[in-house]
Nucleic acid binder design. Sequence first.
RNA 1: GCUGAAGUGGUGGAAUUGGUAGACACGUUGGACUUAAAAUCCAAUGUCCAUUAGGACGUACGGGUUCAAGUCCCGUCUUCAGUACCA
Length: 953
Amino acid sequence: MSKYHFNDIEAKWQKHWAEKGTFHASNNSDLPKYYVLDMFPYPSGAGLHVGHPLGYIASDVYSRYKRHKGFNVLHPQGYDSFGLPAEQYAIQTGQHPAQTTQVNIEGGVDNQGNRIAGYRNQLDKIGFSFDWSREVRTSNPEYYKWTQWIFTELFNAWYNFDTDTSEKIETLITLFSSEGNTKVNAACDEGMETFTANDWIGFSSEKQQEILLGYRLTYLAETEVNWCPELGTVLANDEIVNGVSERGGYAVIRKKMKQWSMRISAFAERLLQDLDTVDWSESIKETQRNWIGKSVGATVEFQVKDHDAKIPVFTTRPDTIFGVSFMTLAPEHELVAKLTTAAQKEAVESYVHATAKRSERERMADVKTISGVFTGAFAEHPFTKEPIQIWIGDYVLAGYGTGAVMAVPCGDQRDYDFAKHFGLPIPNVFEGVDISEEAFTDKENTVIANSDFLNGLKYKKAVKLAIYELEKIGAGEGKTNYRLRDAVFSRQRYWGEPFPVYYKNGMPQMIDVAHLPLELPKIEKYLPTETGEPPLGRADVWAWDTEKCSVVSNELVDGKTVFSLELNTMPGWAGSSWYFFRYMEKEHRSEVFASKEAMDYWQNVDLYIGGSEHGTGHLLYSRFWVKFLYDLQHVPVKEPFQKMINQGMILGESAFVYRVEGQNKFVSKGKKDGYTIQPIHADVSMVNTSNELDVEAFKNWRVEFKDAEFVTEEDGTFKVSREVEKMSKSKYNVVNPDDICDQYGADTLRMYEMFLGPLEQAKPWNTAGISGVHSFLKKMWRLFHGGPDDTFFVSDDAATKDNLKTLHKTIKKVEEDIENFSFNTSVSTFMIAVNELTSQKCNSREILESLVVLISPYAPHIAEELWSLLGHEQSISAVAFPKFEAKHLVESSKEYPISFNGKMRFKLELSLDMTKEEIEAAVMAHEKTIQQLDGRTPKKVIVVPGKIINIVG
RNA sequence: GCUGAAGUGGUGGAAUUGGUAGACACGUUGGACUUAAAAUCCAAUGUCCAUUAGGACGUACGGGUUCAAGUCCCGUCUUCAGUACCA
């Protein structure tokens, strides 16, 4: 073989790696461990486009590099295989989602006759060093058994704020029976009643269960949820974008439903603090901080006049307490109905009704409009005892803080606007500040005035004293508030994990791990039932027999030993919140979710690569579960992902043809002037690298284009215009990696994706540019094929000085680049190395062997092939990375740039042994210097040995 | 509005600590080889002026620090991403 037959080479080595299990990681190795993880994909029927593998290629380069560096590398892959598309496909076609999912992963033909390549086949073509023996699919019962188990563990736990850990529910029960709940500092539902030990012992079992539910880390509660009627399910906050569903863009309304929730809010402070312990980008940490939304301030209680009620509010500005001139409640606030006077009743009710009717989106759309109604009631200022009007207004959100605010118009712009609009007083509590135009919100320059004991104090001191005084009179206390809400965990869907829950007398009961997994039942249709129950409501065999410990027919439900099972399923993020532990275990997967030995060895993910779009969902939920599992000593780590890199999106270059408005006529890009045109997408596969459209193919693309007229350029070609957009099927700009592999090879694809630009940056894909990388690989191949008739040839002669210099500068640069995830620049470095070695006519074994190892993380197939041609029998994958030796880069002279006033004018080769004075003398004596100076005497000469010479004057 | 990131040739991008701006590629132009094509190779390619020698300008814009600024400082603009009546 003398030509570079990449297709043969790549198929050969991919087969070899699979057969030999080359990349299977060992769970007991003396080598240091390194765990590299990709965010696992949802296997959609559309298959991979060239944007998807970018992160996988980067992580694969790093994994292979780490193996060369002597690490035992775990680099697994799997599928986040529960999800909406498979279910919607099931609704349309009746095909079971499990079947669709399998075809999408393994390839085949779906029941609509579409040929599906299959994720696994597509991934295999790219030559990843994944350890497939540890594959995970979240929809496999063997896997979701443990997702269900974690759910039951959360159910059987509570959060103790005194020790700041999750504890077993038994410890809480013990506390309740010995001292009631008055001293317990736990995360619990709002408005939890207080009781003594005697009360507790006297409660019925149902009552006790109900109370415990208010403390459990996953709990059932009537909550106001984001209901999406089109999708027929509730959505979590992070599944809603701009007030509509992230998937499909459907309207979302507020609705009260009984739902499972996760008490993630208990972990808010730890989720925030531990961000400092991980090596993530500042922007993604910031996204998480915003989402957690910590704010420090105080709660203040306002006594309502003539009522036995207090209204608690949260404020970050207790220092402005004397600036309160009214209060505003959210229209949904529970006290509204009670407080409203008869005179205001009608106005208040119509306002409440009107806001309830508006969707989230409408409410967001006009934040500018100020609206509100006076309730007629008054509260009392805690210090001055002055009466304060109580209003309602939709600028106050029911879901944040206490759903009520103390309005300080002089210090808050929204309160200010509200006061101006309704003619309410605006007292000024700031010294020397003009508030006739707008509120004064700056904290730094605050000096408090007109505020009794706070007068003359600056912000920080005033806050402290205000809280102290509030606590003294029992009207408030210091308090930290978080924006992070508990996460709704129920979905009214079929294709998700069933809850391991049955109901006895209306109270939820967990199924013991010994009887898990609780597998999804078979149903005929994947739609909600006619009575509005979730799809599982259609199952006939969906009841739990507590004696047989198995699922039985619904007909057997008797309320004594056989009970109804939960009809909701878990959300998409359940399975992805712990999958990184599952990969660690390969031996006893049905017995444990991951063994202690495996977890002690692998610890956490050293490098996690994936998109930044999971900043608030997946990354927050998995951190929460890991902290919980850590508290119960199920896992040895507090954080799942030590270092994270977020790869940028690869964008597509869409092709547009211009259609003349109202006619079946298209004009080429250069001819469009004078026409009223409308751009439409053409499939990029019909356009060549010079932007010429294959007109015949275009005519055949759509029936309506068959007889279209085409106005071409002078040379007869028809040109499209290009625009960079997100890669998507609907924009006809998708490039399939399979095609690139067939045409140029996986090694070319891998190197080109790395060469495109910095990993974390968004960048457009341009197939035309791939030829540069491809010719580079061919050129490298030729370096090893300098024998007669281009046969393989390397010599055992000693390497020249130049050869060694090229090699070692390459080792140094490539090593630094990989460590810094600067993969694009190392591809350039390889090109420079091969260009140099080619012109040096290098065929030295010593040099070429090292070169092959250097490049093998990037282009593993060609590296394996050349390695075996060099006479090695073992795979190159574990060969030691070449060692950099600085001695080969030592220079005796330097070509100095000579600048005049900072501008480089000429270069001069000088010995590096020379002193500053000698250099200066040599430069000043040079004829070009004399010519440049033109008789002037320089004011100053800067000599930086080894760097530069600058002559000033 | 707030937060974060970024603005460099026709294009993707490089310049890791202030020290030769535009590495490495794509594209374009010209040439070699070939009956031809493909493949390969060679040369040119920031803009402007100049026949050459050479010169002026040049890293979003305006200032500043420095012998020297894409890089540091101040101000402005633009783009992208996240988030938003958060009290």
